[in-house]
Simulated scan of single mutants.
Amino acid sequence: MTIYFYSTRERYGCFSNFSPHGFVLDDVYWPTSEHYFQAQKFVGTPHADQIRQVKTPKDAAKMGRERSRPLRPDWEQVKDDIMRKAVLRKFETHADIREELLSTGDELIVENAPGDYYWGCGADGSGKNMLGQILMEVREILRHSNQQ
């Protein structure tokens, strides 16, 4: 069985970066993993803190995609690791969603994002599904840390 997620209102909505599961990372509180991810595009600039403080993850995403802001030059190289770091911290912080992720066993996890061929599976399923891949990696990490 494959587990698909997209909207925070659906089953497995906690897998979305828009889910309201905040955490502390880099000594600062982030309301969602989306806030953290988008802010890292402008790390070390006032833009990062502006993004951290906006009300919704949708606003954070919008601000992070505004190309009027100075995108860090190494973004393409670091974005997967930044996403992995944020997702891991989110699931380490919240026991309820950690259990939800661990309960998926070895199922394939897919972000069913029709418009996103990198983080999601895209409209035709041919996308990279990087967010799904990272969730499965985080599931493995958590599974092994639970056994100690």
Rank of each mutant, 00 (worst) to 15 (best):
G132Q: 02
E100I: 14
D106E: 14
E100C: 07
I109R: 09
E111C: 03
E107R: 15
D106H: 12
T104W: 04
L101M: 08
G105C: 08
D116R: 04
G122T: 03
N129E: 01
D106I: 07
E100Q: 12
D124N: 14
N112T: 01
V110T: 11
L108K: 14
E100R: 05
A123Q: 14
S126G: 02
C121R: 15
G105K: 15
Q133N: 14
M130C: 06
Y117E: 01
L131K: 04
W119H: 03
L102E: 03
I134F: 04
M130G: 00
L102P: 11
N112M: 05
D116S: 03
G127H: 07
L135Y: 03
E111F: 02
Y117C: 01
Y118G: 01
E100K: 08
S103Y: 03
L108M: 13
N112R: 12
K128Q: 14
E111N: 03
Y118Q: 01
E100A: 05
G105I: 10
L131T: 08
G127S: 05
G122N: 08
L131N: 04
Y118F: 15
T104K: 05
S126M: 08
L102H: 10
M130P: 00
A113N: 10
P114C: 02
G127T: 07
S103I: 00
L101V: 12
D116M: 05
E111H: 05
P114E: 10
E100S: 06
W119E: 00
N129Y: 05
L135H: 12
E111R: 07
C121M: 15
L131C: 11
D124A: 10
L102F: 07
Q133C: 13
G120M: 01
L108D: 12
W119Y: 06
W119V: 03
G132S: 03
G115Y: 06
E107M: 14
S103T: 00
E111A: 01
L101R: 10
L131V: 10
D124F: 11
W119Q: 01
T104D: 00
E100P: 00
D124T: 13
I134Y: 02
L101S: 08
M130W: 10
E111D: 01
N112K: 13
K128N: 11
E107V: 02
A113D: 05
L108H: 12
Y117T: 11
V110R: 13
G127C: 06
L101F: 08
N112H: 12
V110Q: 13
E107D: 15
L135R: 05
T104F: 04
A113Y: 07
Y118I: 12
G105N: 14
T104V: 09
L101D: 03
W119C: 01
G115W: 07
Y118L: 07
L102I: 10
N112W: 03
N112D: 14
M130D: 01
I109M: 08
Y117Q: 00
Y117M: 02
Y118K: 02
K128M: 13
A123K: 15
L135V: 09
D106K: 13
G120C: 04
L102R: 12
C121T: 12
L101A: 08
Y117W: 08
